[in-house]
Design a protein around this nucleic acid. Structure first.
Lengths: 345, 345
DNA sequence: CTGTTAGCGCGTTCAG
DNA sequence: CTGAACGCGCTAACAG
């Protein structure tokens, strides 16, 4: 059985006109039937639906959204790294809330690249999204300014962008990092290393300041040689920890400011244990972001846990609230709580 | 500084007409300028671009795609679980190849739900996608039949659907499961449990048959009481392993047919070790799908490794090949190799 | 170099 | 109950 040729001319989708022709009615009757059928004789509806079936007709949403008063039903979601389960779960949170509002999400990956982000947002707008949820890749505000996105409802998630008056959902980065670091100090550690993002990233700056605060508050110095910033992936995070551990006076504990760094650190720790290093000579760890298999940690471990799904859902709620309110609402920032979860004392 | 009102009437995006008016030219001149500007006086272009800037104008892609000959530039991607990093990475592979063809992806999550999948595909088509890549949620073919999607180029990934003549990219499920199980047998195990998907799922059926083959080939029986199927998430997978381990004659090794089951099993193993169980009394493990932190396994572990990114990229290549070929190409199936990676002997 | 015309697929409005 | 006309935003083809 050979695959049938595409019904429309030029390989396009069949149109309402073709359905009408086949059913022996006018396009209007098809439109009405598909809109619920009120005011169309049942027998005619039957004929129309048959034609729809036969042709594999689908309404052209793009054409529909062109009509005044009609909405595209799309929410644009731009995340930095699709391969990171954290953002996948985040997107899922957005999607579920969006679904309850009858909207679909269109998802784009920026790869932490500002240019791609700019492009993505422009394209989203070109596709008539009704709202935008974005995990900004950097602190640059250019492409998100009011003159670029117009009055399009937009929500920033996870990171804030200075100079932008947009609704924002962030985590209690400072508090979480503070409590995590504090936990290590209370466990008796004095030399506590730091693995994290560069300061130009919103969360990088906030989490480092929480780490800093906990140390200085306890009269401990921040040793620059114990601070490794900028590694974004598991592999380089492992290498960064290796540098710390191989130094003359290595840290006895590590505060890791995000998932990727924590995983990288644990992988490196695992490698060393298999290489014969005694686990008791390896650093204790506190990591921002929870992760799977934390239970298997061979060293003392705690995580700053929070729910990416909730982050996404909250961002979506903020967005729809703005979309539905007619009069201007001042930009709000929601800071979601985090909890210190001790996996292994 | 208050957020500016949306320029267009009714909160819609500004149109080419408004830009034209503001620049004191006709819409056509704006269109030409935006298309590269050939045949427009530089000074006029200047005026146009200024108006574009001021109004925050973006071309309406939906309207553009309405025009004959124009394409939407969208590839629809439907995956089963966005929160699973495996599929996130898969989508990334698709996206990257799509980008080289100047296409963007529109991503939808089916949640293993056939109805949502049907809806999703219909909506995708309504939005004039040029091609479809789908990880089918079940073996039901209804909504993907030629009469439903017309001649729309489509590729199935990871799972095949019987009765559909579509391009497909799958893994060497049978071979992988065979080699994994065989590895356990060669390590001296005789009672090897199975954790995996139900047989109605394509991969579930294939991977179980690889497991089965390895056992029978070596003269070992498949013990139904050692087979746990149907658990889809980490938690229930852990519970399934617990059932096996708490039985009268527990297995000494486990073959786990997917990521979720492997993670769940390792979590359960971790729990038991922390509860005081001697690791040597816990089962060795071979899991289909690689995963992060495999290095930390406290029990002997091997994984059937493969690259979801590659799976996505291959699916996309298959899709574009079909999209670009004018004459009908018979449906092809590509089976990607997998490798046995021994993490801990 | 620039503007006018026409039509892509659809649905609201108004006529039959 | 059904159809014809119109226009949503955009651009190819054709004037000027």
């Amino acid at each position: 059985m050979s695959r049938p040729r595409r019904p429309g001319p030029e390989g396009r989708q069949p149109t309402i006109k073709q359905v009408a022709e086949r059913a022996g009615v006018s396009p209007m009757t098809v439109s009405r039937t598909l809109a619920g059928g009120s005011g169309v004789r049942p027998e005619v509806q039957q004929r129309v639906l048959e034609a729809v079936q036969k042709l594999g007709y689908h309404r052209n949403e793009n054409a529909r959204s062109l009509r005044p008063g009609h909405r595209s039903g799309l929410i644009g979601v731009a995340i930095t790294n699709l391969a990171n389960p954290y953002y996948g779960t985040f997107a899922l949170g957005v999607e579920e809330v969006a679904a309850t509002y009858g909207r679909r999400i269109i998802l784009g990956n920026t790869g932490e690249d500002a240019d791609r982000e700019t492009q993505l947002v422009a394209d989203f707008i070109g596709r008539q999204i009704e709202g935008l949820i974005i995990v900004p890749s950097a602190s640059s505000a250019d492409h998100l300014g009011p003159d670029r996105i117009g009055g399009l409802p937009a929500v920033l998630a996870s990171r804030r962008v200075y100079g932008l008056e947009l609704d924002t959902v962030v985590l209690d980065d400072v508090g979480g990092a503070y409590r995590g670091t504090r936990h290590l100090i209370e466990s008796g550690h004095r030399r506590i290393g730091y693995l994290g993002n560069v300061l130009s990233v919103f969360t990088g700056q906030r989490r480092f300041s929480g780490y800093e605060r906990a140390l200085t508050e306890q009269g401990l110095a921040v040793h620059p040689e114990l601070v490794q910033r900028g590694q974004q992936d598991v592999e380089s995070a492992g290498a960064a920890l290796a540098r710390l551990l191989d130094s003359d006076d290595p840290p006895t504990a590590i505060f890791s400011a995000n998932n990727r760094n924590t995983i990288g650190a644990l992988s490196e720790i695992g490698r060393r244990i298999r290489g014969g290093t005694d686990p008791s000579r390896l650093p204790a760890l506190v990591g921002f972001d929870d992760f799977e298999l934390a239970d298997l940690s061979p060293v003392p471990l705690a995580v700053i846990a929070h729910d990416p799904h909730q982050l996404g859902a909250e961002a979506a709620r903020l967005l729809f609230h703005r979309m539905e309110s007619t009069d201007p609402v001042p930009a709000r920032t929601i800071e979601l709580p985090v909890t210190l979860r001790i996996i292994r004392p």
